[in-house]
Computed example of a mutant assay.
Amino acid sequence: MVIDLMGGAQPSQGGDDLIKETTEATFMADVVEASQQVPVIVDFWAPWCGPCKTLGPMLEDAVRAAGGKVKMVKVDVDQNQQIAAQLRIQSIPTVYAFYQGQPIDGFQGAVQGSEIKAFVDRLIEQAGGEAEGGGLDEAVAAADEMLEQGAASDAAQTYAAILGEQPNHPAAYAGMVRAHIAMGDLDQAEAILNGADASISHAPELEAAHAQLQLAKQGADAGPVDELRAKVDADPDDHQSRFDLAQALHAKGMTEEAVDELLELFRRDRTWNDEAARAQLFTIFDALPAKDPVALKGRRRLSSMIFA
C-alpha cells in the first residue's frame, strides 16, 4: 500500500509519545514509518461523533496499559479529509491497525472494553510480543500439546487439574472448552463457556474458544463438499452455495481453502447478506492462534481488498 499525501512526510512532534494527533503532512511519519517498530492504532473520529467520545478514551487506556507495545494516532476526519478519502472511511468511529507499513486489522463502531483489549492483545501477538497477562505455564502448554496431538480426554483432565488450582485461569478454562469441542461434546463445551466467571468471560482465550464453538456448530450442519463445489462451479455468483462450501471445507479441516472461498465471496460482493463473508472470516481468524499463518495471510488479503 502506497500513501502519497499532500505535503509529504515531515517529522511529527513528540515522536516517543504513545498517543498523538496526526495531520495529512505527518501521517506517513506518525503511522506508516512508526509502524515499522510497533503496531500503530489509527482512530478516525470527529468532534461531532458521539460514539467516538466513548471509544477514544477506551482505546487510549488500552494503549497506555500495553506499556509501549502499541501506539495510537488520532485522525480528525473533518480536518484531514484526504486521509479519510484515501482510506475510504465511510463511517466513524473507524479503527485501523498498521504494522510494518501495512493495515493488518480493524473494526468499525463502538465496541466493549473487553473487545478493545482483545484487539490490542492480538496486535501485540502478531508483532511477536506477549500481551499483558499473557503467557501460559508449563502445565497449560503441555495440555495444549496433548490437544493438538488428538488426546483430548487427557488434555481435559490436565486443564481440570489446573483449574483446581486456579479456577479462573483463562487459558485453562478455554482449553476445557476446546477439549470438549474436540471430543464432539458441543453441549458441554457451551455449558462450560457459559459458566465462565465474569472476570474472564471476555478474555481473548475465551473469545477464541467461543469462535471455535460457533464454527463447530456450523460444521455439524455442513453439506457435502463435492456437491457444494459443483454448485459453485456451475454458477460462480451463487453466493449462498459458496458460503456453504466455505463452512463445509472448514468442517473438514480445510481451513485455508475455506478462507479462500470467503475471500472470493467478499471480492465478488462484500455486502452480501450483511457482509456475512467478512463476519465469517473474522470468526475463523478469531478461532485460530494469533500467529497462525492462515490467519495472518487471510487478514492481510482481506485488508488489501478493503483498502484497494
Results as ranks from 00 to 15, higher is better:
L193C: 09
A191V: 04
A174L: 03
D274T: 03
P236I: 06
G219H: 03
L228D: 09
W272T: 02
A222P: 02
V177T: 13
Y159G: 01
Q240S: 06
D185R: 04
Q188M: 14
Q149W: 05
W272C: 12
G195Y: 10
R268C: 05
E261V: 07
A230Y: 00
R278E: 15
L249R: 00
P170N: 09
A220L: 15
M183P: 15
M254R: 13
D221F: 10
H169E: 14
A208L: 04
Y173K: 09
P167M: 12
A220C: 09
L228W: 11
L213Y: 01
D226T: 11
P170M: 04
A208S: 14
M176D: 07
Y173V: 12
A182I: 13
H202V: 07
Q212Y: 13
Y173P: 06
A211V: 14
A179Q: 06
Q214K: 08
M254E: 14
R242S: 02
D244W: 07
A222Q: 08
K231A: 13
E227Q: 14
N273H: 09
A209N: 03
V225G: 00
E257P: 00
T158Y: 07
L206P: 01
H239Q: 05
T255G: 00
W272Q: 09
L147N: 00
D260P: 11
G150E: 12
N273C: 00
R267M: 05
L249P: 01
R268A: 08
R278M: 13
A220T: 15
A276W: 08
Q240W: 04
N168V: 13
Q157V: 12
L186M: 02
G175H: 01
R178T: 06
H180S: 08
G195N: 13
D269P: 02
N273I: 02
L215Q: 04
A191T: 15
D154A: 09
H180T: 10
D233A: 07
D154I: 06
Q157D: 12
A179P: 01
R242A: 03
L249G: 07
A251D: 15
M183I: 07
E256P: 00
A216D: 14
T158G: 05
A179E: 10
V225R: 05
L163A: 08
P167D: 15
A258D: 01
H180C: 05
E264W: 02
L163T: 13
Q247E: 15
R178Y: 00
A171R: 00
G184R: 09
R268F: 01
R178C: 08
E264H: 04
A191P: 14
Q149L: 09
I192W: 01
E261C: 02
E190G: 10
A172D: 01
D226A: 07
D154P: 06
S201T: 13
D233R: 07
L163H: 03
D244Q: 14
L249E: 00
R178I: 09
A211E: 15
Y159T: 12
L186Q: 12
A251I: 07
I200R: 04
M254Q: 14
Q247W: 08
I162G: 05
I162L: 05
K252N: 15
L193I: 10
